[in-house]
Design a protein around this nucleic acid. Sequence first.
DNA 1: CATTCATGTTTACAAACGTAGTCGATTACG
DNA 2: CGTAATCGACTACGTTTGTAAACATGAATG
Lengths: 133, 133
Amino acid sequence: MARRESAQAGQGPERISEAEHAVMEALWEQSPLTASEVGERVGDLRGWSLATVKTLLSRLVAKQAVRTEPDGKRYLYFPAIARADYLGSESRRLVDRLFGGRAAPLFAHLAEAEALTSEDIAEIEALLREMKQ
Amino acid sequence: MARRESAQAGQGPERISEAEHAVMEALWEQSPLTASEVGERVGDLRGWSLATVKTLLSRLVAKQAVRTEPDGKRYLYFPAIARADYLGSESRRLVDRLFGGRAAPLFAHLAEAEALTSEDIAEIEALLREMKQ
DNA sequence: CATTCATGTTTACAAACGTAGTCGATTACG
DNA sequence: CGTAATCGACTACGTTTGTAAACATGAATG
């Protein structure tokens, strides 16, 4: 089925779907967690059954985005990729796909859509000042 | 299956997939185009058959992202949504999903990942100056 | 020890997606 | 006019995703 990791090198960062991402967020916030703990956190607020959460966890393990450690008869789940890396690559994807890889047009859009709060602006100014040195 | 558009209101902006987006880009760059013209532009550079492009166009029409006008025995295809709107909503989605709706952390990530060129920075500064007034 | 509970694994299934072939109608060309 | 090229519509098919049930197994509990 056209695996991309079948060949040599391998662990290409297998895309994480939106539902899977919600599970990742739970694990990034705290880890390790058991499946039912993830269920409590994510399932409840998204209206998912425990079964669904278990499926998502398995898929994340298969994608090597989550790692497990046995703990008696069950597993403890850990994130296997860093949140920062994930955010970085997803942001980059968007910027590449929609803005030709340039961040400025993205900002222009956010600004125009009034998606920038005044705190955002202040923070960005601060960042810019920092970068200047 | 929890369709979100099943209920009353309806024409929620039906997500555009990545492949479909490539077709939209062609139409945004120039329109109207015939199916084969889209094929020439998009298909060639993505390695798609004309059949594939035709499928994508139909799906976009179904999603009301593309509009047609008959021209003899064929159709002329027009974008039915503005590129700016699309960019805006996609950017917003990302910012909401990954950064809690705040643009500053996104900026910080791009900055950290060195995804910002010096022109980007200059442009962003200019934007900020503009917004201040 | 028998039964229930918790847990991971397997299987399911519809919708969306990527990718494309086929078919019927129409047009254009020789 | 007959035939080839064109075009949209319909059909197809494997994969990924969202969502979950069924099952097997081992642990806990009465």
